[in-house]
């Protein structure tokens, strides 16, 4: 198995699906000649041509809407929003159109659209370039939300998303593009709605996704030295949400913490915590805790930014209090 980066894994998935299905095409800002703002689509234009790898104007609402229309017109568009922050300009097409068309039109139309977007903080890019907005999409029925942490899942989830018939918000973390990991070559699909247990443990369940998974694993290793045996779960998709795997773990450990980079209030962690309460209340020995970004715009200064974001030390501190 090859060790490749998260970025290369995504690129590989795109190439394989472009090869596999002629209905697949890519459009977005800078995806062609420049190969993508984060180089995820690097080299694709040269292989697949301008018809299937399309540089668009900076017009997020229409890029997303054209994706909806092209999907309804029989294609499988992959739309790249340069970052999810700019994706807010596309919210009408995502929420009012992509998410609703199948239902609102009586199940007669399909919108097989994948919207890829980088997100996340950590690079001193300030409040408008550092957000993690998965909760906005998780809130909306009709949208799948995939949010891979590892290079293998980046590839496997993207391929699975492209092959199914629903609109997907596919969120990549900007800090993960250079992360390397084992990625199977060729056909490799990660099922949607199946969490991955990255580390087994009996004392506490740490549920996470995207970049925070790495913080959770680091925290679990630190906790091990203190005699605390933590289980770490990477959700991989937020819709569908694999509640069963989480609940099974909580039944074993009796304690659960959700770690995520979205804002604490109204974040995905709140939903996950609520589902744990609903399904495993009797098994809980402590309240479910959330370790998340503080309820503040992301600041520019590095010390302030770090203070706003969740990290391994925060996880350790909260876990120590819980066990």
């Amino acid at each position: 198995m090859a060790q490749i980066t998260y970025r290369e894994a995504l690129n590989q998935a795109l190439r394989e699906e472009l090869d596999r299905d002629e209905r697949v095409f890519i459009m977005g800002e800078e995806v062609g000649y420049f190969g993508g703002a984060f180089k995820v689509t690097d080299g694709l234009l040269a292989v697949y041509g301008e018809k299937r790898v399309r540089d668009t104007p900076i017009a997020e609402l229409t890029i997303a809407g054209a994706g909806v229309g092209a999907a309804m017109g029989g294609l499988k568009p992959i739309v790249e929003l340069m970052t999810i922050n700019f994706g807010l300009l596309a919210m009408d097409q995502i929420v009012n159109h992509a998410a609703k068309i199948h239902y609102m039109f009586g199940g007669r139309a399909k919108v097989p659209l994948v919207i890829r977007a980088p997100q996340g903080a950590g690079h001193q890019l300030g409040a408008q370039h550092s957000q993690s907005l998965e909760a906005y999409f998780l809130h909306c029925p009709g949208l799948l939300v995939a949010i891979p942490a590892t290079p293998a899942d980046a590839k496997g989830l993207l391929k699975s998303c492209i092959r199914q018939d629903n609109p997907v918000i596919f969120l990549e973390h900007e800090s993960l593009y250079g992360v390397k990991g084992d990625v199977p070559e060729g056909e490799y699909l990660t099922p949607l709605g199946q969490a991955s247990v990255l580390r087994e443990g009996k004392d506490i369940t740490i549920v996470s996704y995207s970049k925070c998974v790495y913080d959770a694993v680091a925290a679990a290793e630190a906790l091990e030295n203190e005699g605390v045996d933590a289980e770490v779960i990477d959700l991989r998709t937020l819709n569908p949400l694999d509640t069963a795997t989480v609940v099974e773990s909580v039944r074993k450990t009796g304690k659960a913490m959700v770690v995520y980079e979205g804002w604490r209030t109204g974040g995905a962690g709140a939903e996950i915590a609520a589902q744990i309460y609903e399904a495993a209340f009797d098994h809980l020995d402590a309240p479910v805790e959330r370790v998340a970004t503080l309820d503040t715009p992301i600041p520019y200064n590095a010390r302030l930014e770090k203070a706003a974001l969740p990290g391994a030390a925060d996880i350790v501190k909260v876990a120590e209090r819980m066990v």
Binding site: G69, A70, G73
Partner: peptide, 11 residues
């Protein structure tokens, strides 16, 4: 309007 535009793109 964008949906029509995308539909034309599909063609």
């Amino acid at each position: 309007i964008p949906i029509a535009t995308g539909s034309a793109l599909a063609a």
